[in-house]
Computed example of a mutant assay.
Amino acid sequence: MSHGSPTGMPGMMDDQQMNSLKGMTGTAFDKMFLTMMIEHHEGAISMANTEKRRGSYAPAKELADSIVTSQTAEIAQMRKMLGTGSPSPTAS
């Protein structure tokens, strides 16, 4: 689940995606920004879930729980702003 990232980190945008965003304004910019941020947050959730499953350091696992909770809520808010309103499939 690299989401187009050359680093292989989930949710990281590549240069082409960022350059596309730079060229937009108004509603088109807003929609692309929100769409990219949802993808970025989904990547964070994926990485946090990996920490929860594989990690052993309690403070990191607690942080991962917090990330899943906060990022899932932010995804719901952004999807509402976009009019899609469906929950994140990676929030489990």
Rank of each mutant, 00 (worst) to 15 (best):
P89H: 01
S92A: 15
E74Q: 12
A60Q: 05
M37Q: 05
F29T: 04
R54K: 15
F29I: 02
L21W: 11
H3S: 07
L63H: 02
M37A: 08
A48L: 00
M81W: 10
M18K: 15
G23Y: 08
P89Q: 04
T90D: 12
T84S: 07
S20D: 13
H40A: 06
K61S: 03
G26W: 08
R53W: 15
A28R: 10
I67P: 13
Q71F: 01
E51V: 06
Q17L: 07
N19W: 12
A58Y: 03
G83W: 09
F33K: 14
K52W: 00
I45P: 04
M9S: 13
I45A: 04
T84Q: 11
G26V: 10
D30C: 14
P10E: 00
S86M: 11
G11S: 12
T72M: 11
A48Q: 00
Q71D: 07
M32E: 03
M9P: 12
N49D: 10
S56W: 12
V68Q: 03
M12H: 11
L63G: 00
E51D: 08
T72C: 06
N49L: 09
S66M: 14
A28N: 11
A28Y: 13
M36F: 03
Q16N: 15
K61E: 01
N19L: 14
M37N: 03
M32Y: 04
G23S: 10
Q17D: 08
L63F: 07
R79A: 01
M13K: 14
S86E: 13
I67Y: 01
Q71S: 03
N49E: 08
P59Y: 07
G83L: 05
I67W: 00
S86W: 13
S70K: 13
P59R: 05
A76R: 06
P10Y: 04
D15Y: 13
N49Y: 04
E74K: 02
D30F: 04
E62F: 09
A64F: 00
T27W: 09
D65Q: 01
L21C: 11
E51R: 10
M37G: 03
H41N: 11
